[in-house]
Design a protein around this nucleic acid. Structure first.
Lengths: 145, 145
DNA sequence: TTGACAAATAGGAATGATTACTATATAGTA
DNA sequence: TACTATATAGTAATCATTCCTATTTGTCAA
């Protein structure tokens, strides 16, 4: 556990250095906070969490930082249908089951999905960077509403 | 072609009657306009199109109507990463290739993707209504920017 | 280690999408 | 045809996101 945390931190430093992003206390904190998160938080949720440590951090900084992290690939934007942006750490490939009632997103891993073949027709249309399966439905909690 | 159009229209009437949605000129027009669309338009884009026919239709009506259609299943909300909501007619199952640069969404059909198996673990978490594969990457247009 | 400078930040204001409100009009039904 | 629940237009309010500016701070080269 400890070791993995160190690895993640090293990846963060390396990637930032690589992409010429300065390591600031704000960025370190935001990265740590999102790395811990398992709930696909919104920018506002992260803002509330980091304010406990850096009480005068601005929302804009949190928001911009999350978008920067997304651009350099250490954070993912979760696909959704137009609500607030939601973020997640980009630590290992996984897929989503999304409840259409409560909008909760459940992560799951699946090797078959990771290895899904890209159709030839699509290969011609561009370069594929990411493959994600989205299962939509109604979760158990909402089913028994 | 003519026949398919009639079928789509019948489906629209049946589904609205079924869900107790009144058939209004506004709704018919919005449905027709989206059915023709192949570009995953935003509510605003649909608003601009229907205004050519109903010049004083309100944006709110268009927006609410699209959301109603989504709820009764004759329209899909396109999964994205937090930009404006985008809509598409729900006429046949398909999948998406999304360019992370220009945000264009390319539709494609693929039987293998339609038939993808739902993991047991997910089956326990809820009822799956929809399966969608999202391929992300950079499209040819953006590649040669 | 220090100084210079591009990059990043806080705070707040502006923008743009979405939702809410209300008086009026209308589709569906008896 | 007349009634009634819905739907609509027009507008206002809300909320997420982005922009702006003066100030601060990492980073890098000397």
């Amino acid at each position: 556990m400890k070791i993995e945390h160190e690895e993640i931190r090293k990846m963060f430093y390396d990637k930032c250095a690589d992409k010429r992003l300065k390591i600031t206390p704000q960025r370190s904190l935001i990265f740590d906070e999102l790395s811990k998160a398992t709930d696909h938080p919104t920018a506002d949720a992260i803002y509330k969490r980091v304010r406990k440590t850096l009480s005068n951090i601005s929302f804009d900084t949190v928001y911009r930082t999350l978008l920067s992290f997304t651009e350099i690939g250490i954070v993912n934007l979760v696909e959704g249908t137009g609500e607030q942006k939601r973020f997640e750490p980009n630590l290992h490939q996984h897929h989503h089951f999304r409840c259409i009632k409560c909008h909760t997103i459940y992560d799951f891993e699946n090797d078959a999905y990771n290895d899904i073949a890209v159709p030839k027709a699509v290969q011609k249309q561009g370069v594929i960077i990411n493959k994600r399966v989205v299962l939509e439905g109604i979760c158990s909690k909402c089913k028994g509403k």
